[in-house]
Design a binder for these strands. Structure first.
Lengths: 230, 230
DNA sequence: GTCTATAGTCGGATAGAC
DNA sequence: GTCTATCCGACTATAGAC
């Protein structure tokens, strides 16, 4: 078993910190492109311009490096949605918030995820979010932290909003299902295949807005239907 | 480069056919569980109760075996939706089909996909559909046939229905986007992670119906909203 | 058609000099 | 901290007996 990522951190001096960073960035790209097995430490070292043993030195092992990459992505994801879920939380705390406001918060959350997945100006955007898809497939325990972030910082806050609209607790099965389906519409945008299917090479601001508008429309349509059926 | 899968087929006699089948079934399970790199030919041979060189003998190479597995899944997928898309096609051919009928066909298609992904009585259900998720991630050319089946037999027929509802051609960007989002709600059910998130170990008929009812509700809600906005 | 034995390759990790 | 050289295990694929 490995030590937790952050404990394995030789080199506090500037020189080592730079090497460490270069390895991490390269690993993100290569793990994203080829998966854990597909990316060899030799490749990573070569592309990063460091020597092979540097990986062992800085991250203990290949798996340690992988875990470090995952932790990085998880942090970024949590940070991005933090202000949105904080606003949603405060809204739900006030008693009897108007229905329209709850729906607005759900739309805002969904919008933020779309922006996060599609904003091409963010460095490493595509590489980063490929891992969100990978969680579904590779059942390594190393990916659990990312799964946890998704559940706690996105799925659960969304379920609280949907639950309120349905008049049920957030862990109710039907609430959970509906939440997953709404998020499913959005999750497709962290996949390469979908972009290829659309013929989108690059994504400009106009396209992000188009997607956001459409996701909003769907989400509102679903929420409207919720009123009757519960 | 390898010969196409179906050309590599020694043994028409009963004994060989059985061996071939056992390898194929085992490979499906192990590739599904561990991916292409993660499943070794040694493992497959051992679990199938055959010798290592049998894989080369029947499928030419490990990749040949992988392609054979993919072809099998693609055929099953196409067969499952065939009657539904045939009915939808005939509906669209008649001039001016009622709006409600077009929506019904879209719902039927979506229902069928849900049933296909969730029906636990089908042998190898879970193993089979894991690959549908894998297409998004692994960008091996070997997975292309499965991607093609999805696009031609599911995505495109769905887009034709959505396009009719929006009064636009099926290859219009907005039509395509909307179709992808509607299918996104459903596609989440071919992932292990989602089932784990719901705490569903087994899936009985009641659960399939619950999901179908909800997907239907969402799809109809979205289609209803389509009328105004186009 | 089925099998044993083995060739040939590659990848992760380490030893130890500087 | 960085590097060269090397070990060792695992893998795919093949040769050739039966």
């Amino acid at each position: 078993m490995l030590p937790p990522v952050n404990r394995y951190r030789p080199a506090a001096n500037p020189r080592g910190e730079d090497t460490r960073r270069r390895i991490l960035d390269t690993a993100l790209a290569l793990f994203a492109a080829n998966g854990f097995d597909g990316a060899s430490t030799r490749d990573i070292a070569e592309h990063a311009g460091v020597n092979l043993p540097a990986i062992q030195y800085y991250f203990g092992s290949k798996e340690g490096l992988y875990r470090a990459v995952i932790a990085l992505i998880g942090e970024h994801l949590a940070q991005t949605v933090a202000p949105v879920i904080e606003r949603a939380r405060r809204c739900l705390e006030s008693d009897a918030p108007p229905r329209a406001q709850v729906i607005n918060h759900l739309c805002e959350l969904v919008d933020t995820i779309v922006a996060m997945f599609l904003d091409d100006t963010l460095p490493d955007r595509e590489n980063r979010y490929i891992f969100v898809s990978r969680v579904e497939i590779e059942d390594t325990e190393a990916l659990d932290p990312l799964h946890d972030v998704w559940r706690e910082h996105i799925q659960f806050p969304a379920a609280k909003l949907v639950g309120r609209l349905m008049g049920r607790p957030p862990d109710d099965e039907k609430v959970l299902l509906r939440t997953l389906m709404i998020l499913g519409q959005v999750k497709i945008f962290c996949s390469r295949a979908v972009m290829r299917g659309l013929g989108w090479q690059a994504i400009d601001e106009a396209r992000v807005r188009t997607v956001q508008a459409m996701v909003n429309e769907h989400t509102r349509a679903i929420c409207r239907a919720l009123k009757g059926s519960a």
